[in-house]
Amino acid sequence: MQPNTDRTAPDPEPTAGDAAEAEAQAQAQTPAARVPQQSGGDTPASAPAPAPASARPRVTLRSDLRAGVLDGAVALVITAAIFVLLYARIRSRASSTATVMPFMADDPGGFWMYFLSQAFGWSALLWAWVTVVLGLLLSGPRPAWLPMSVPRLERLHRTTSLNTISLIAAHALLFAAELINHDTDAWYAAAWTAFVESFVPGGYASGTGRIAIPIGQAALYLAIPLGLLFYIRHRIGPTTWRVLHRFVIAVYILSVWHTLLYGTNVWYDGWFRTSIWLLQLPIAALFLLRLLRPARRSQRLTAPSAHPGSQAGWTLRLTGRILAGATLAILLAVLATGRDGGRAEPPADTSSTHNHD
Rank of each mutant, 00 (worst) to 15 (best):
W192A: 07
A177I: 04
L167N: 05
A172S: 11
L179E: 05
L162P: 02
T184I: 09
L162V: 02
S166T: 15
A176E: 00
Y188K: 12
A169I: 10
D185H: 13
Y188D: 14
A189D: 15
L174V: 02
D183T: 11
L179H: 07
A189Y: 02
T193M: 01
A177L: 13
T164P: 01
H171F: 08
A194V: 03
A172K: 05
L162W: 03
D183I: 12
A190T: 09
E178W: 13
A190G: 09
I168V: 12
A172W: 14
A172P: 00
A194L: 06
T164L: 06
L162C: 02
S166V: 14
D185Y: 12
H182F: 06
T184V: 13
A170M: 14
A190L: 09
E178Q: 15
T193F: 01
A169K: 04
A176C: 01
D183Q: 10
T184G: 10
A172I: 10
L179F: 12
E178K: 06
L173P: 02
D185T: 05
S166A: 15
A176N: 00
A170R: 02
H171R: 07
D183G: 11
A177C: 06
A189E: 11
A191Q: 08
A177G: 06
A169C: 06
A177D: 03
I165Y: 06
A169T: 15
I180T: 09
Y188E: 15
H182R: 10
I180R: 13
S166W: 06
S166Q: 09
W192Q: 12
L167T: 00
D183M: 13
N163M: 10
W187E: 03
A170T: 00
T193A: 07
A169N: 02
S166M: 10
H182S: 06
H182A: 00
A194N: 08
L162G: 00
L162A: 04
H182Y: 06
L174W: 08
A172Q: 13
Y188W: 12
W187I: 14
L173T: 09
